[in-house]
């Protein structure tokens, strides 16, 4: 109470000056004007990003769907209109041929299945590599955790393209990996590593590792260690304690990390293009080729819609996990 009384004259004194008054008057006019538009401060704060993401993120998908239903044409832009005025009536032509084409041509179906397979295997490998790393950071001494985490994140800040390129020179036939293997005597002649599926797995694990480690670390770090002590006191062996306590408790981190790797990896273009071979078919690469090489915008759009349908469920799970985690942080 006394605090409030103490501050009141201060506030009055400040707005009492001539300059303060004109400012206040100007502010008043502006706020009234905005109020008439139905926008208050709060409305603006919510409204601007809402409008932006509706316009630049949601509405584009309407156009993707529209163009996926049109036909390729030799025009600028290279597709036909869905709507036309014929004899005073609006005529809408929906053309499902593009979807029919991509689901009947084995190239696209193979590319789909292959993308899911490659993304799933790489996600699993990333988890296997990342889990022990996240565990070690979470159990390191407190003062070590931030620097170790920084070391894991730092490569993520350097160019993705350059990191993939770095593996190109390491993995090529006369690259460092082959010459080391030959010097040790494991192989006699260079083996082909670049342009294989293995190189793609390696590239995905390498590029997405920080995305796996961060959510794993944040769940492992929050874990109540006394649970493990209790288990040990009751005669539980360390491995079993890990399997029965630590692993289930870190499940939210595992799910979040796996989705953060899997979803973008399914649509990955740069890694299969640079590290994969000509027969490493992935849907992101197919979409890119349809768009840039064949200049077939309707088929590229149909591929994008099909890819989106495949990812809608994982994306929704991801958002659910994300929202739940924020709720947990608030408490």
């Amino acid at each position: 109470m006394s605090g409030r009384d103490h501050h009141k004259p201060f506030g009055l004194a400040r707005s009492g000056g001539i300059e303060g008054l004109s400012d206040a008057a100007a502010m008043h006019v502006v706020t009234q004007w905005l109020n008439r538009l139905g926008l208050r401060g709060r409305g603006l704060v919510i409204g601007i990003p809402y409008f932006w993401y509706l316009l630049f993120f949601l509405i584009p998908f309407v156009f993707v769907l529209k163009i996926a239903l049109s036909e390729a044409a030799y025009s600028v832009p290279p597709f036909t209109d869905l709507t036309e005025w014929a004899e005073g009536a609006l005529k809408i032509t929906l053309n499902l041929a593009n979807f029919d084409y991509i689901f009947s041509d084995s190239l696209y179906v193979t590319a789909y299945l292959n993308s899911v397979r490659i993304a799933a295997i790489s996600t699993l490998l990333t988890l296997l590599v990342g889990y022990p790393m996240a565990y070690a950071i979470a159990r390191a001494e407190r003062s070590w955790r931030a620097p170790l985490l920084m070391l894991v994140i730092l490569p993520f800040w350097t160019s993705f393209l350059i990191r993939v390129y770095a593996w190109m020179s390491l993995l090529q036939d006369n690259g460092l990996v082959n010459s080391v293997l030959m010097n040790i005597g494991i192989i006699d002649s260079p083996i082909r590593i670049l342009n294989t599926d293995f190189a793609v797995f390696l590239g995905i694990v390498y590029s997405y590792l920080p995305f796996m480690i961060l959510p794993l670390y944040s769940t492992l770090e929050k874990m109540d260690l006394s649970l493990l002590e209790a288990a040990e006191d009751l005669g539980c062996r360390p491995f079993k304690a890990f399997w029965r306590i630590t692993l289930p408790l870190s499940l939210p981190g595992i799910i979040a990390g796996c989705l953060l790797v899997f979803i973008p990896a399914v649509g990955e273009f740069v890694i299969p293009e640079l590290l994969g071979g000509p027969d490493t078919l992935m849907i992101g690469k197919v979409l890119w080729q349809e768009f840039f090489s064949n200049r077939d915008w309707p088929v590229a759009s149909a591929v994008a819609i099909a890819l989106l349908l495949l990812l809608v469920i994982p994306i929704m799970i991801f958002q659910h996990v994300q929202a739940k985690q924020q709720e947990a942080e608030k408490r």
Partner: peptide, 18 residues
């Protein structure tokens, strides 16, 4: 939160069409 995981080929293509 969708742009965080959306494959870039999709967001790129959709923005272009917009």
């Amino acid at each position: 939160s969708a742009p965080l995981v959306m494959p870039e080929v999709i967001s790129g293509l959709s923005m272009l069409l917009l």
